[in-house]
Design a binder for these strands. Structure first.
Lengths: 126, 126
DNA sequence: AGCCGGAAAGTTATAACATAACGTTCAAAG
DNA sequence: CTTTGAACGTTATGTTATAACTTTCCGGCT
């Protein structure tokens, strides 16, 4: 089930809600119910294969093989595509701020909404 | 209505869901319905008086009088309290990364979950 | 083989979060 | 004193998520 959910998510660069995934997989498994999907997604997130987009209540397949740091997710509000990367500098900066107030970070949520390069140049050509 | 919602949110440092706010205000306005709350929250967010915690589907009153930058929200997973600040350096770093791929940021979601200083020292004393 | 135990998935039901669509009120502009 | 539009009320429903319990299946054990 995890493998099937991951396949569905990998088949598209646009994030999908758990219910989108459910609708996809119901074509093959008509009786599939939400908890199954959420369990698979939880396991995949645990293994770092999938990221949850908190600001969209949606999920994307991880685009990197391995993570050193927390991912930064770049969401195009125009085409919907999500890019992923990470920045040691950024994490260092965050840790620095955290340190001053004695805050011990456990999990970072960094999502940036805007217009991606492709949509930006498409627009400027128009 | 906006003022009442803001009062409720300001009365506590822990984020509240829209339905938490609704339950609070129903004591005074028994017939209050969700759309009224969501409308007030939308207007307050527009005015920068309230922030939405995307990773919790919840809302907190803004703790700063004015923002230069996008807020960084620090969420204690122990006591639930949210602190807020901002960092020009961090935003600069993000813009730098964005620039390389031609991404034009419009909205930043930066939320860090971890243990706050107070809970950390409480634990170490125990 | 037959049994046991645990992990994954199925199943049912409901909780929690959010908004569409339309109606009402009321005050300020014309 | 009518028009108009913003705020709010109301009803209904859509969307996201999980609690709680059951079943299935596989692998080890006797």
């Amino acid at each position: 089930m995890q493998a099937q959910v991951l396949d569905v998510l990998r088949s598209c660069r646009v994030p999908m809600s758990a219910y989108d995934v459910l609708r996809c997989l119901r074509e093959e498994h008509p009786r599939l119910a939400p908890p199954t999907i959420y369990r698979a997604l939880a396991a995949l997130m645990e293994r770092g294969k999938v990221h949850r987009l908190e600001s969209l209540n949606a999920f994307v397949a991880c685009q990197c093989e391995r993570h050193r740091d927390a991912p930064i997710l770049w969401v195009c509000t125009d085409c919907g595509v999500v890019e992923e990367n990470s920045s040691t500098d950024l994490l260092t900066a965050l840790s620095g701020i955290a340190g001053k107030s004695g805050f011990a970070p456990m999990r970072h949520v960094i999502e940036v909404h805007g217009r991606c390069g492709a949509c930006g140049s498409a627009e400027s050509r128009a």
